[in-house]
Write a protein that binds this DNA or RNA. Sequence first.
RNA 1: GGCCCCUUCGUCUAGCGGUCCAGGACGCCGGCCUCUCACGCCGGAAACACGGGUUCGAGUCCCGUAGGGGUCACCA
Length: 462
Amino acid sequence: MTVVTRFAPSPTGLLHIGGARTALFNWLFARRHGGRFLLRIEDTDRRRSTEEAVAAILDGLAWLGLDPDEPPAYQFQRRERHAEVAWAMLETGAAYRCFAGPEELQAMREAAAARGERFRYNGLWRDRDPAEAPEGAPFAVRLKAPRGGETIIRDLVQGEVRVANAELDDMVLLRADGTPTYMLSVVVDDHDMGVTHVIRGDDHLNNAFRQAQVFEAMGWPLPAFAHIPLIHGPDGAKLSKRHGALGVDAYREMGLLPEAVRNYLLRLGWSHGDAEIVSTEEAVAWFGLEAVGRSPARFDREKLESVNAHYLRAAGEDRLLALLEPFLAPPPDEAGRARLRAGLGGLLPRAKTLVELAEAGAFYTAARPLEPDARAARLLADEAARALLTRYAAALEGAEWTEAALEAGTRAFAEAEGLGLGRVAQPVRAALTGRAASPGLFEVLAALGREEALGRLRDAAL
RNA sequence: GGCCCCUUCGUCUAGCGGUCCAGGACGCCGGCCUCUCACGCCGGAAACACGGGUUCGAGUCCCGUAGGGGUCACCA
């Protein structure tokens, strides 16, 4: 049997980090078993589903490299088929017509609340003759769920979970307007799409019982379920809007790499011994549901960024420069780009995100004359320092422009001036970068190139 | 509130009855390196929620308590 997994988001908002992880686990599980990973857009809520949300989901998955193996299925387009199944269940007696209207249901709800009980549909029409209903009255189709016993889910993550059938009521399959409900649609689609493993958020665990009843009623084989714990915010509650807009696109804008987000997400709730940095190949080879934990994990941005720092350093010059481009403002000229490339190696250990990298390297792409920041300006305000820069520039005039030669030359200069290297380096740094902190002075000098470096020194000199 | 799930350092986690005075990672603190800031390296503080069992022996198994979370629509 070939494994088929699916990611089934409803397009009502962003592709958030929890959804992304669910998609990742489905994708990995399918890859691990040489199966297929499908995408189903659950857009049956016409009021809340939007085109933009669909696009955001598709974009987000593509960015993360979690492309489905087939074009996405749209649930709304399959509503006829869903309804057919409901009618078939009516036919076999697995479902029945319920003529209780919204007001009636509301009254029952209130009555239950008044008694301090939880409302469960009382099966009023379950055994009643439909002929008793007013002529032409609208009706919903409800599942004739088992009354006694219990429904058991053998969940690949949660273990065996059971609930008394008395806790479940006869859910609506088809609304009075003839449209199928989510519970019905999901089951029919999972069956028709040949889904073998339903891997989804823990918040669906309760749904699994009801869905199992529908599978049962139709005589369809039950897929394997795996309910993975949700990702919580730093406060321990389910990740939501109030924790900040957390669409995948936001992570891209924060300057994170897709492979870093994937690695971080993978380690949230799943582990393989002490492995922290796990390549996609390793993840595919190692991933298994048995290693997924059962307790929810909190989202930790600092750890994400540290993982990102790792992948930033591993990304390679050309790709990095290309990724950096959108973060460069204003767009640099060719010479600026060349300086940035030359200095990239020294910038990397100083940045965890593309945003930080762009910021750290801004002095390379900046055009003369530089605008020193407050601390650099203070270093350059000193007249003796500026006079020193004049002499230093002169000393470098004929120097061989390599990092080693520049270091030797600078040390010799400092000694001749009777100064420690630090006394020379700081004003020079301020002149070259406009800052008081930067990558090593000699690599900055080398990356800037003779002309630009001397120019910047003279701009700041007396 | 009913039902369901969860509980090892601040956070992510290793641990699948003895090798655990509990290991790794992020973060934090200190030191080294050093032209600044980082990186790196070295060191440190930091956890088995609580109470009962079972067992020669429990972080690991069972029960209870407490705490946290999820879910209870003709929404998905």
